[in-house]
Design a protein around this nucleic acid. Structure first.
Length: 118
DNA sequence: CTTCTTACA
DNA sequence: TGTAAGCA
């Protein structure tokens, strides 16, 4: 997935090699390495760099961008965990209660709609 | 010739 | 960040 060398990335992102390497040192990107220890960037790295460039232009510092990506990573991880975890009794209880209320069991008597007797 | 690391301004 | 030095 990674094939682009520094020179290409520089042109594609309008960033200097110095900046690109610095963002990497700050954990914003993780390009692969290949032959003589040369960085190989993927298309995802390019997208990320463009995003970083825009954030910077909007006044967000590197630390801030780092925080954003860390949070997104945490959120994605939490979602994965949730999807692999079977529904707990608590989840089932909440779902059934929400469904009960939605069908008009209690609360919101929508104007014009007749309540369905249970 | 291109990229890399390290170090100084 | 820019730039220079010395390698690979």
């Amino acid at each position: 997935m990674a094939v682009l060398p520094m020179g290409t990335v520089m042109k594609l992102t309008s960033l200097t090699a110095r900046q690109i390497r610095y963002y990497e040192s700050q954990g914003l990107i993780s390009p692969e390495r290949s032959d003589g220890n040369r960085r190989l960037y993927s298309l995802n790295d390019i997208d990320r760099l463009l995003e970083i460039r825009d954030y910077l232009a909007d006044g967000v510092n590197v630390a801030g961008i780092k925080a954003i990506y860390d949070q997104q990573q945490a959120a994605a991880q939490a979602k994965r965990d949730a999807q692999q975890q079977p529904l707990t009794d608590e989840d089932v209880r909440r779902i059934l209660q929400d469904e009960f209320i939605r069908q008009g069991g209690l609360g919101h008597p929508e104007p014009g709609l007749q309540q369905r007797p249970l």
